[in-house]
């Protein structure tokens, strides 16, 4: 019934340090790019409103730090996420190899109701670097991995040039929408005074 209402999506961006998570977010939210590297401390938060299929979304983007010392952000950070974005640098093989760990870590911490179908998106970033000559992770390789993990959508992006960034985030919104739970009727208990005072009766014991 309330399908027209504004939705807030919690989006978590994960990946090794230096793959460009913050830059992607900045490109998407502020349409800005800086060549200077500044490590994210802990986590950064940004908000972006998007319109998609006649619906208004607010993306609450959690940009996390890639450094190992911040990797124990824990349950609280991942809790209630609507989508998880895994980022790697196509010029660094290790960052691609780490994707598996990031994905598993996320599933353990966030423990979503349906881990098989939890919406992930994989981004292969920095495709602009050196005209693609220093590239070590091929599109084919990345896509194969995505396919093996339940057909995760894959995008090749350049935060610097703004390539595919918009499309990737649109996919995030679409995925999260698909995963929207059924609207439930909110039914608290009522008090049965006749039988047992202040004992809750079973309005809904589901």
């Amino acid at each position: 019934m309330a399908s027209r209402r504004r939705m807030l999506l919690k989006v978590i961006i994960l990946g090794d340090s230096g793959v460009g998570k913050t830059s992607l977010m900045n490109q998407y939210v502020n349409r800005k790019f800086s060549n200077q590297y500044k490590a994210t401390i802990g986590a950064d938060f940004l908000t972006k409103e998007v319109q998609f299929e006649d619906r208004l979304f607010t993306l609450q983007i959690w940009d996390t730090a890639g450094q190992e010392r911040f990797q124990s952000l824990g349950v609280a950070f991942y809790r209630g996420a609507d989508c998880c974005v895994l980022v790697h640098d196509v010029n660094v093989m290790k960052s691609f190899d780490s994707l598996n760990n990031w994905r598993e870590e996320f599933l353990i911490q966030a423990s979503p109701a349906d881990p098989e179908n939890f919406p992930f998106v994989v981004l292969g970033n920095k495709v602009d670097v050196d005209g693609g000559n220093s590239r070590v992770v091929s599109e084919k390789k990345a896509k194969a991995w995505c396919a093996s993990k339940g057909n995760i959508p894959y995008f090749e992006t350049s935060a610097k040039e703004g390539l595919n960034v918009e499309a990737a985030f649109e996919c995030i919104a679409r995925n999260a929408l698909k995963n929207e739970p059924e609207e439930e009727i909110y039914l608290p208990d009522t008090i049965d005074v006749a039988n047992a005072r202040q004992q809750k009766s079973s309005g809904c014991e589901c």
Binding site: F45, T47, T58, Q60, I61, W62, G74
Partner: peptide, 19 residues
């Protein structure tokens, strides 16, 4: 909705201490 980022920051503070 516009305060979503701010709200996330508050949660981060609370859960950081809780951790």
């Amino acid at each position: 909705h516009k305060l979503a980022g701010f709200s996330a920051t508050l949660q981060a503070i609370i859960s950081f201490v809780e951790n």
